[in-house]
Design a binder for these strands. Sequence first.
DNA 1: GTCAATAGTTTGTCCTGACATATTTACGTT
DNA 2: AACGTAAATATGTCAGGACAAACTATTGAC
Lengths: 255, 255
Amino acid sequence: MWPLREVAVNQPAPPIQVDRNSPVPLYFQVAQHLEQQIESGELATGSRLENEIDLADQLGLSRPTMRRAIQYLVDRGLLVRKRGVGTQVVHTKVRRQVELTSLYEDLVKAGRDPRTRVLSFGREPAPATLVLEFGLAEGTEVYAFERLRYADGEPLALMRNYVPSGLMDLTPEDLERHGLYNLLRAAGVNLRIARQSIGARTATAAEARALGETRGASLLTMERVAYDDHGRVVEHGKHIYRASRYSFDLTLTGW
Amino acid sequence: MWPLREVAVNQPAPPIQVDRNSPVPLYFQVAQHLEQQIESGELATGSRLENEIDLADQLGLSRPTMRRAIQYLVDRGLLVRKRGVGTQVVHTKVRRQVELTSLYEDLVKAGRDPRTRVLSFGREPAPATLVLEFGLAEGTEVYAFERLRYADGEPLALMRNYVPSGLMDLTPEDLERHGLYNLLRAAGVNLRIARQSIGARTATAAEARALGETRGASLLTMERVAYDDHGRVVEHGKHIYRASRYSFDLTLTGW
DNA sequence: GTCAATAGTTTGTCCTGACATATTTACGTT
DNA sequence: AACGTAAATATGTCAGGACAAACTATTGAC
């Protein structure tokens, strides 16, 4: 299971060079180089790295700096370490992080030509459920809006959202042109964490009509609250998706 | 947004004590103490910590150790740091990590009295889809089994799974008594990452009968592949849940 | 030949010390 | 009074060294 020594160790000296005058931290330069070598296959899947001390010597760095570079890649799941044994490149299949993105960005990435129609838009006091369930300050004014999201010209999702109006200025035009999360980021909001609940139910007549489904079709439902890095509620959404055209893909990591 | 200094700084000396004879690393002891103080409200939401150097002095630790303790909590989202400013406790609502758990554990935690009935169990060569889609080595023998999961005496989910037989010994009795992920962990498998796809569809007649739903009811579907820390495929599952009784709750973190 | 003790390798933890950089606060000049 | 500059403050990065603990492989005893 753990490869033999002679077989596993790669090139005697990985040709990494660090630039001490760069503003980029040394540990990060090393981490990037290593990541690139892993990604390019230069450091093969399953192969063992040389030990920290030798690597540090070869690059003219201290061991703590080398360790930090390696730790960074361990945290991102590219390397595995075992005390008394060594550091090994993880199988390629096990990459990628959990990301906090929105439907709009996902669709753009997938080249699915997203369009948005704003069905309703307004400002109002935050509804009681938001205050009670998610700890929004009482009396906060929020934008409330409803959007229909299309992909490749076909309706895909019906989205109802609340956003505290103190965070940013928002217009229906903004929402037609950009994804909500991009707008939040552009306003300087640092999304840090979001709680989602994903379920399913059958469509009501009105929902079926809006989404172009038949009555009684299965829908994916998603309710989400997002917080910024100070713990303020930044967004609340209740979305429904056509199950025939959408599914949630996610990557979970455990210790 | 960032609280004033005089207001924010808490007790002059948090009464933390570390045990240098404990096998638990010092940085971890400190992190746990701090976490407990935050959880108990002793360190209030939004309050600022003293600076690293003073804290280290007060505990008789070096700055790197203190930093590591703080960094641990920053990574877990309990603290926020800003260079030149300080370290602040994040709002209470923004806790909790993504966890790699199984339905069984979740139900136990919720006190829902989980039961499992094994509908079928066998060993067979890995099906072609597993080899092609998820990179399982060709010719691998796998356990293939089907389980019906009950909560509080009511059927909740129908689960079809594959597990490479080389990983562990598995019997239907094991599966009736424990969750799959607990069994894997007990066999020394380190779950590291899982890819899930969550969708919805209407129940077939057979599925509806097994789950006690009416025909045409909405079901939540989940397909998952889990990998261990060496990148080996450890488990594949295709599950269906009664949408009327189950939803996926998840927490996403972004940078 | 088998098993237990031992030596060697590698990562884990912790220390002291130094300088860099971002941010806020205070001061002094205009 | 307003503005730009400097000082104070806090975290970020890096070095070099020491010892501990886990794991592997070898050696030695029976």
